[in-house]
Amino acid sequence: MITVENLHKAFGDNRVLNGVDMSIGKGESMVIIGGSGTGKSVLLKCILGLITPDSGTITVNGKDATKGDRDTFLAQFGMLFQGGALFDSLSVWQNVAFRLQRGPLKLSKTDARDVAIEKLRRVGLKSDVADRYPAELSGGMQKRVGLARAIAAEPQIIFFDEPTTGLDPIMSGVINDLIREIVVEIGATAMTITHDMSSVRAIADQVAMLHDGSVQWTGPIDQLEHSNNPYLDQFLNGRAEGPIEAVR
């Protein structure tokens, strides 16, 4: 469903993506792991068209991601951003229903609000949160609202950028479970970037490890512990010694 071939991206002299190849099947949950600054977010943003790659091809449902109508292309996606990226000037329900109040999916205000409250309920928030503003919510609640916004239009593909960053372990577990449940429920293809191994184990069908701008290992979650890949082994065990150079 999503295929990335020989993707390159550099910022000045810094070659962030250096020939990434990856394939995610329909309805599959792919988790991309890797250290900070290895290009995980850049890869995700290249697929969404937020960053233009230097070379390589990205196809979504067999169509070149860089060609065709942008709105139609983006309508397939939902995205949960690392910091939530909720719109400060809009109330919680307006954030969740943002896509439902504009464009071809436009609903009446009442219907959009009803859908938003239903999605908020799905992520464990009560309807009294609907009229509050993002600044009035805790970090965990903001993540939930971001998740509700990502699934509001029931997209075919959902991206999760560091979904548990900044959350306590219990809230991380709650968000991981929610993501897994919702992805299965909608039947969506999911791509998650994280370095939280609890997220990997809770969310992933497939795992890919990114290092030095390319995929060092990819495989199903049940082979993660038995990969015999030195990069993955070092990352999973959090060792300072190994092929991944750690700056002290």
């Binding site: 969404l48 937020l50 996606f77 896509r99 916004r149």
Partner: peptide, 8 residues
Amino acid sequence: DALTTLST
């Protein structure tokens, strides 16, 4: 970025 991904 969120605006863009929401087709706006």
